[in-house]
Design a protein around this nucleic acid. Structure first.
Lengths: 105, 105
DNA sequence: AGTATGTGCAACTCTGGGGTTGCAGCAAGA
DNA sequence: TCTTGCTGCAACCCCAGAGTTGCACATACT
């Protein structure tokens, strides 16, 4: 369920404000308004970020009464991490192979 | 080493063009001019991307005669992957703990 | 009922970054 | 030497997106 398109996930993770949102959510689910009280940005800005985070599966909305709290989905990070690890390993293997060839083997 | 500058790495990885550059470099080191022949963007655009990739340690310049070839550094991807994995695991552990509490335990 | 708080939508500004073209500089081969 | 091809720098365009304000709507609480 990593959605195959991991570039948008990285784009989502490439913003400081979104990381502070994720960090804040890491200490407990919270609504956009609650987050706006803790972070130096407006509620609407946070709402937009939450949309982005939700679209890439890093966060999940949970209705609690009339408010919408958001929860971090750690599994998405783990999946993304595994994809990265795989790609990095492939490149390292290629480099190792080239090195062997270069050294005459 | 990778810790403090995590976000810029993600920002660098959050661009399709840079991924195609990385993919192209994955098949062998190449110069900006060589890449410009393979990708549908100008050499200068690629040069800028290479600067970004180099700044976050995803790529390394190698002078070969009068040209500058670039090599992918897979280790940086692996390091970043490990950081992600750790964070994701922490969040998942917190969610698990909350679930236990919620279930009465 | 009325009030208050949280959410959603829309318009707007403005900076950053992806992309381009053009030109100057410089190293290697003829 | 001259010439060719690769690099580096600078100026410029353009749009996506981060942020704001303002207002309308809905849902809970009294």
């Amino acid at each position: 369920m990593t959605s195959g398109t991991l570039v948008p996930v990285f784009a989502a993770l490439g913003d400081e404000t979104r990381w502070s949102i994720l960090a804040a959510l890491g200490e407990g689910d919270a609504s956009a308004s609650a987050l706006a009280g803790r972070l130096p940005v407006s509620r609407q800005a946070i709402a937009k970020h939450l949309v982005v985070l939700q679209e890439v599966g890093l966060v999940e909305p949970v209705r609690v009464g009339r408010e919408v709290r958001f929860r971090v989905i750690g599994a998405q990070l783990s999946d993304t991490a595994r994809s990265l690890e795989t790609i990095g390993a492939q490149w390292d293997r290629r480099l190792a192979a080239i090195k062997e060839i270069a050294e005459g083997l």
